[in-house]
C-alpha cells in the first residue's frame, strides 16, 4: 500500500531539502561569527584548564575563530590559538 502511494509522490529534488542544506551551510558560517564576549569567556576557560598543566603568559594569548577554505569551495570554521608557555608544571610530582 505504502509503495503504491510513494509511486505517485515524487521524492527527488524536494525544495525543503534544498532549504535545509542551504540553512545548514549558512548557519555554520553564522555561528562562527561569535561575539567577542563569547570568545573571552572561552579564552578564560582555556586559560583555567591549561594553567593546571603549565605556566602560560596570559598577555601573549591570541585566540581567534577563522574560516579555512576547502578544495571544494566550502569553508571549515577553525579555532586558531597562540598560547606562549613560560614553564611546564611537574604534574607527576604535584599529584603525589
Amino acid at each position: 500500500m505504502i509503495s503504491l502511494f510513494k509511486f505517485f509522490s515524487k521524492d527527488e529534488n524536494k525544495s525543503k531539502d534544498i532549504a535545509k542544506e542551504r540553512l545548514k551551510l549558512v548557519l555554520t558560517h553564522d555561528r562562527a561569527n561569535v561575539s567577542p564576549k563569547y570568545l573571552d569567556m572561552m579564552k578564560d576557560d582555556i586559560i583555567k584548564v591549561m594553567s593546571s598543566y603549565m605556566e602560560i603568559e596570559e598577555e601573549g594569548i591570541d585566540i581567534n575563530l577563522t574560516r579555512v577554505a576547502n578544495d571544494d569551495d566550502t569553508y571549515t570554521s577553525t579555532l586558531v590559538a597562540n598560547i606562549p608557555i613560560k614553564k611546564m608544571k611537574n604534574i607527576g610530582k604535584n599529584n603525589g
Binding site: K10, K16, K24
Partner: peptide
C-alpha cells in the same frame, strides 16, 4: 506543503 516536500517539516526545523 510539508506533505509534498515543499516546506521543512517539524523534524527538519528541530534538527537545525
Amino acid at each position: 506543503l510539508v506533505k509534498r516536500g515543499d516546506m521543512m517539516n517539524i523534524d527538519d526545523t528541530n534538527e537545525i
